[in-house]
Write a protein that binds this DNA or RNA. Structure first.
Lengths: 303, 303
DNA sequence: GTATGCGATGAGTTTGAGTCATGCCTGATG
DNA sequence: CATCAGGCATGACTCAAACTCATCGCATAC
């Protein structure tokens, strides 16, 4: 029984051109080979597959329904090969074609998606997987090799990972438009006396820097709502309370939302985030590219 | 710049074996060629792709991370090629590798799925799409070429389509266990006097054969619920009423459901279903195979 | 009838995949 | 330390597959 051999893509490619061209002569011209080459390739392919692909009617080649279906299958395969080709290009250029990213929620709805878009714009060959998780889990994922790079808030401690600071800035105060504080040019911790606060629900509850700051300054707050960082601006916009958060996440979320005023906040609460990756990634050419994209991107953020 | 050529699958296959084997000599043994052939193929592939796939360390080949990624990509591609191979096999055997089926709801939850399973069991190369719709829409889909074959209740009229009767039988009466009629050995239309009926909600409301029969026999029914044919046995099982339906659909639905008794019904209400396909499909080898599968399947249904 | 375009095919040529023989290197062994 | 075994690279060669060339038969257009 003729085993369906697919030794040569060439025969498939010739068939594809032939099918598209409609005649062997035309296909030959397109391919830059002779008509006899096409004719031979076809008859050989037919023999190989055990399929009659073209009827020879009145000295013309007429595609059979089988040829039509095979053509579609081949189109699919060519697409797959194209993907492989793209992967190879990414592999050449960046040393990898697969980039698994883990990031904290504060960066996962704006900054990292934009970074991913920028990366893909330069090379469609990248196959990217992107997960959002807590800073601690980001470290674990990168350490264990389940992710290639991670974005975390600094400082972090990890013996195994390289840590690269990308940005250090200060937290801003988010105030609903119409709120008494909204007309100020800056907000001080003292202004938050008796204010209702919206804060991020971090895993370590006592670690919220704003609450700690309030405590050390003897400020009594009016109450607090903990929420996922992705929902905080929405809560602020709806007048639930005021919040203090890093300007990156704030900018990401406020780009489409009105009704929130962003003000400087004192005393300064440091916010620092960066990139982590395993030791064995230190030479990956992709890193340099990611850094460049990130630098470019950060310019678009205030501060 | 070296254009990433993927002329030969052979080189990729050799690389794959090499990667799996870990050494060129072993790969050569596996492939039944010589070590020098593998060595050449590799260095050529590396040149082609412009990638260093193996480091030559102390006279051993050591895979680079790039090689690892390429290997995974190649695995994927090989899988795709395998799919193509299967399609070709289906194409050889049945003249098609794609089968688009449209069927009426009464057959869509049991008979046709089982038929599809039987087809796939014989040849995994089939790519099947299956839709459920009204008998009228089935005809339209097949006529328009959106579906290759259709299953409908007969009789149908279509100038363009070939119609093939597969089974003619008589409708049965479905009675909830515990119902006064449940102990009978057969049910006559007269027995339905004052009974609550569950009937299929066909598009043409006045066309329900059971209701028509009742009318002509002067039978007064206690009431009726129209329901999707897929839900009728469930309604009967829960004591909503009795129903009369074709034995194929009944069997399909009752296989996992207790609480319903199926009885012969008089006078006989004919039920006939069959296959429709376009003229240009009359020679498709797949048809013969589908018929065989169908015949086999029908044996498992009662009478 | 002639010209043109298409496909098939026998004969000849080119190409490149694979083999053979060989050399180099390294790590194990006694 | 000497030897040996196993692994990779490479120059020279071989051979089959792929392609070209030349030519033929067939259909259609003018």
């Amino acid at each position: 029984m003729p085993d369906v051999n697919i030794h040569s893509l060439k025969a498939l490619a010739i068939f594809k051109t032939l099918f598209e061209a409609g005649s062997a002569s035309q296909a030959a011209r397109t391919l830059g080979i002779t008509q006899s080459g096409v004719s031979r390739s076809l008859s050989q392919l037919e023999q190989n597959l055990g399929l009659e692909l073209f009827l020879r009617e009145k000295n013309r080649l007429v595609a059979t329904p089988e040829a039509r279906e095979l053509y579609e299958e081949i189109l699919r395969l060519m697409g797959n090969i194209d993907e492989l080709r793209h992967s190879v290009l990414a592999l050449k250029e960046f040393g990898t074609s697969r980039l698994r990213i883990a990031a904290i929620p504060g960066l996962a709805f704006g900054f990292v998606p934009r970074l991913v878009a920028a990366l893909l714009e330069d090379n469609r060959g990248f196959s990217i997987s992107f997960d959002m998780m807590s800073s601690h889990d980001v470290l674990r994922e990168v350490e264990s090799g389940h992710a290639d790079i991670g974005f975390v808030t600094l400082p972090v401690t990890s013996r195994q990972l390289r840590v690269e600071e990308w940005l250090t800035t200060h937290a801003r105060c988010l105030v609903p438009r119409g709120h008494p504080l909204a007309t100020r040019t800056a907000v001080n911790i003292g202004d938050l006396e008796d204010q209702y606060l919206v804060i991020s629900n971090q895993p370590n509850v006592g670690a919220d820097p704003l609450l700690n700051l309030a405590t050390t300054h003897g400020i009594h707050i009016g109450g607090k709502t903990e929420a996922n960082i992705g929902a905080i601006t929405a809560l602020v916009a709806n007048g639930v309370g005021v919040s203090v958060m890093n300007p990156i996440t704030a900018t990401d979320q406020l780009s489409q939302r009105d009704g929130v005023v962003v003000l400087p906040f004192t005393p300064e609460i440091d916010f620092s985030f960066g990139l982590v990756y395993r030791e064995d990634w230190k030479h990956a050419r992709a890193l340099e590219f990611i850094r460049a994209c990130g630098r470019e991107l950060l310019k678009e953020y205030p501060g």
